[in-house]
């Protein structure tokens, strides 16, 4: 197993803001916070898989928040992640119609004592739907689009990943993949609006 570097909060924020998200920083988040946060989910009607899924969503959300300069450092990363985890899990429980009225009151009372990150969780459903849309584009489209727009790879480096004849064929495929996704969003303007709001965290 590769060594996981220990970051201070400040170092971690600085690392996460770099062009490429560091795998080591992600490992650091798992190593340091998965235990506590996953037990919160498990102790509140969640399964082991729920804990995995919610923590992954929390980490993705946290990294995105940091990269968009929405994390102001008013609380420690640990406190922030804990709040994010609680709000995400509560939102998920609501979605599943499992939260009892009594628990909602309890959660509302607790909300006053901690960082309110509910606005960061608000658009999670629209995000999840859009992620499912990308899944539907197929393996080749996903590879091309993620390699180009997320990993910033040049076309010549993407070519061997999808085994296309030449860069022009690859370029055409990329065009079609992005256009397909654009059409999916165009056909569902309300979803597109909610997704945009979710990305900008309502600002």
């Amino acid at each position: 197993m590769s060594k996981v570097i220990g970051y201070s909060d400040e170092e971690l924020i600085k690392t996460l803001k770099k062009d490429r998200v560091s795998d080591l920083a992600i490992k650091h988040l798992y190593k340091n916070y998965y235990g506590g946060l996953s037990s919160y989910v498990r102790n509140n009607q969640g399964s082991e898989q729920d804990a995995e899924d919610i923590f992954q969503e929390v980490i993705v959300n946290f990294i995105d928040v940091v990269r968009r300069d929405k994390f102001k450092g008013e609380s420690s990363i640990k406190t922030f992640l804990y709040s994010l985890c609680r709000f995400t899990w509560l939102n998920e429980l609501k979605r599943r119609n499992r939260v009892l009225h009594r628990e909602e009151k309890y959660e509302a009372a607790r909300d006053l004592e901690e960082t309110d990150v509910s606005y960061l969780v608000a658009g999670r459903e629209s995000k999840n739907i859009v992620m499912t849309m990308i899944d539907k584009l197929g393996d080749v489209c996903r590879k091309i689009l993620v390699a180009f727009y997320y990993e910033d790879l040049p076309m010549k480096d993407i070519l061997p990943l999808v085994e296309f004849q030449n860069e022009q064929v690859l370029r055409n495929k990329k065009y079609k993949c992005l256009k397909s996704l654009e059409q999916m969003l165009d056909s569902n303007p309300e979803l597109a609006r909610q997704f945009k709001n979710a990305l900008t965290y309502g600002s």
Partner: peptide
């Protein structure tokens, strides 16, 4: 199209994690 690109970036981060 811009939103689609943003979505791909969000998807990329999720995949990396």
């Amino acid at each position: 199209l811009q939103l689609a690109q943003e979505a791909v970036r969000a998807y990329g981060l999720k995949s990396q994690v």
